[in-house]
Amino acid sequence: MRCSLLVPQSLDWGWPWRFELETSIVLTAIELVELSGYRKPSAQARWLERNGFPFVVGGDGQLKVLRQAVEGRLGGKLGEKKREPQLRLRSGQQP
């Protein structure tokens, strides 16, 4: 998923006027704060462990939580395909 964001001149802090955002497979730092309610990685890790969310600590010291794990745990749709009946024909029969 891609979207473009136009930054008004009054908010330009030296960034490009236009940049693209991509949805990552892991939660962003902001999303992790929103999910856990904590800003410190150590507090976030405790919260994630208590609530059963799997995570790893990256080489940068930041927690990595798969977006799919969170969506699945919170009841989001993961693009699961609904199984449909399959037609099986016996040998020699035509549909």
Rank of each mutant, 00 (worst) to 15 (best):
W13F: 12
Q68V: 13
P95M: 05
L78T: 00
A45D: 03
L78E: 01
P41H: 07
A29M: 06
Q9W: 10
W17R: 14
S91C: 07
Y38R: 03
P85F: 01
E31S: 12
G14M: 06
K64A: 12
G59E: 13
W47N: 00
P95I: 06
R73L: 12
A69S: 13
F53I: 14
D60Y: 02
L6P: 00
G79L: 03
R67L: 10
G92I: 01
E31P: 02
F19T: 10
R73E: 09
E22C: 11
V56I: 13
G61F: 05
S91V: 12
Q86I: 15
L89P: 04
S10Y: 08
V7I: 15
P8V: 04
P95Q: 07
L6G: 05
R73G: 03
G52V: 06
D12E: 11
G37S: 03
E49R: 15
L11E: 15
R90G: 11
F55M: 02
E49F: 05
V65R: 00
G52C: 07
V56G: 10
E31A: 14
V26F: 14
F55P: 01
I30K: 12
E22F: 14
E84D: 01
G58Q: 11
D60M: 03
F19I: 06
R88I: 14
T23M: 10
G37E: 01
E22N: 13
S42C: 10
D60N: 15
K64P: 01
I30L: 12
W15F: 10
R67A: 08
L63S: 01
E31I: 04
L74K: 14
L35Y: 02
K64T: 05
V65G: 01
R83W: 07
T23V: 15
N51P: 01
C3V: 10
D12T: 07
G72D: 06
K40I: 06
E34S: 12
T23L: 14
P85Q: 05
Y38E: 07
T28H: 08
E34P: 02
A69L: 06
A45Q: 13
R50C: 08
L21G: 07
L66P: 05
G75C: 03
M1A: 12
A43H: 00
P16N: 14
V33P: 00
V7H: 00
L48T: 01
L48A: 01
V70P: 03
M1D: 10
L6H: 11
G59Q: 11
T23Q: 14
A69K: 10
A45R: 14
W47G: 00
R88L: 15
D12S: 13
L5E: 06
A69G: 02
E71D: 08
F55R: 02
G58M: 09
G59R: 12
W15Y: 08
Q68E: 12
G59A: 11
L35I: 03
Q93S: 13
R2E: 13
G92P: 00
P95C: 04
P41K: 08
L48K: 00
G75E: 03
E22D: 11
Q9L: 13
V65S: 01
L5R: 05
M1R: 09
C3W: 08
L11S: 08
G75M: 04
R18V: 15
R2W: 08
G76D: 04
G52Q: 09
